[in-house]
Design a protein around this nucleic acid. Structure first.
Lengths: 232, 232
DNA sequence: ACAAAAGTGTTGTAACTACACCCATGT
DNA sequence: ACATGGGTGTAGTTACAACACTTTTGT
């Protein structure tokens, strides 16, 4: 159409990058893929890519994630646009970053078209572009969100034990909770329901643990009850 | 430089829009400007405009806000990128929205180059583009943020009375607090300090009120203490 | 039989809610 | 003198933190 003042509205390339957090039962991981093209060939980076003309940012994030990892994300949320002028050596590229949660079990590292691999968030490799900065912001966002909203469930399977849930909170927030108080608070928050099932631990001896599942309806009563009175 | 796969990375125009919230002592307002050009000529919209080649999104938001309102924002934060395909009739434009806080006293409606005016957030006019949607997200973001973080101060002058502060919380969160409990909690949170000054009310009879100011250092102790045990 | 994790209850303490009276000022 | 908003304290209640013993299982 009309582009009368094209000087005042230059165009840029838009991309999405997706910080996929996973939980393997012990640690928080991040999914990276090894770059197959320049720039930064061979380096690790978040799954992502350029937005096409006919798609929105969300669609782009979903598509790229699926293309590069085979995943359909269950929790995906936009969190920040990164626009430093020199962040991409190919030219001006603004990237909108998303974060995504899932249990690590849903991806087998290296088995997909692209080489994808889970990294412990404390042992990240050098990353392409400004992905280190993107990661830092994603991580603090994760901490904030998990503290006040019931997103921990995104990192777990549909059915989970109380101690798995507790471990998620502990490793994300880097604190320790009393097992009994944690359980009381979680049950009082009314956001999980105990199932009529138990699971016995695969490794080592222990009593079977009751399974719980997330109860979406009562989302709101949670907002306030998960403030664990920590400072962080 | 090289643009080998320019098919896979189409370019779009990027813009910023800034949702400026103000507080006039009674109500939350939003600053809109009347559009002087097409499309949507004559309609109200958020201050904003296209990102230039040599600037970041933040710089763009600051520049546009200044150009259109004369303001230098004191609190400015990016919150979401809007990318619906048909959101701008001129073509594909992705807009990154910011929100900004200030006391309304700092802008005289209509006095600037562009026609700027404060609107009560409950009496908004029809707005250009998808700005209604942008507003809705900005408002819920404001509510979330004020609940957990000390950003109410962005809506007040450096020196403020306890009841001004309380009114900010009440109108943003749409609740009522007990005056004495509110004061206790605020003082206990250690984020404001009483000054050695008082201010007498301009309108109507009342005892002079002590002034307080925001204490930036103790930002963190606040995080948890402002949970007023409401549901919202 | 032992080690390892899961299940469960009580008690002291700290934080919050509800509530009422007096004070300084302007009209 | 009165109406308006500002200043302040207490008592009852609720929510949280701290804490230990028993049970089921695998080796």
């Amino acid at each position: 159409m009309e582009q009368p003042t094209s000087f005042s509205r230059p165009k840029v390339s838009l991309a999405t990058d997706c910080v996929v957090f996973g939980f393997d039962g012990y640690r928080i991981k991040v999914l990276l893929i090894k770059r197959k093209i320049n720039p930064f060939l061979g380096m690790w980076a978040f799954p992502g890519g350029f937005m096409l003309e006919h798609e929105t940012l969300n669609e782009c994030a979903v598509r790229e994630l699926h293309e590069e990892t085979g995943l359909h994300p269950y929790f995906l949320e936009q969190f920040h646009a990164f626009s430093d002028i020199d962040r991409d050596p190919r030219g001006r590229v603004v990237s909108v970053a998303y974060f995504c949660l899932m249990p690590t079990a849903q991806v087998q590292g290296g088995s997909d078209a692209e080489e994808a691999q889970w990294f412990d968030i404390h042992e990240l490799p050098e990353m392409a572009f400004d992905h280190k900065e993107i990661f830092n912001m994603a991580q603090s966002r994760l901490r904030e969100r998990i503290y006040f909203e019931p997103i921990a469930f995104g990192l777990l399977d549909k059915k989970f034990t109380m101690s798995e849930l507790q471990r998620v909170y502990e490793v994300v927030l880097d604190v320790q909770f009393d097992r009994r108080n944690f359980q009381k608070k979680m049950l009082a928050s009314n956001i999980i329901v105990p199932l009529d099932e138990q699971r016995r631990s695969e490794n080592g001896p222990s009593r079977p643990a009751t399974l719980y599942s997330f109860k979406k309806e009562d989302y709101h009563s949670f907002k306030n009850s998960m403030g664990f009175s920590l400072e962080f």
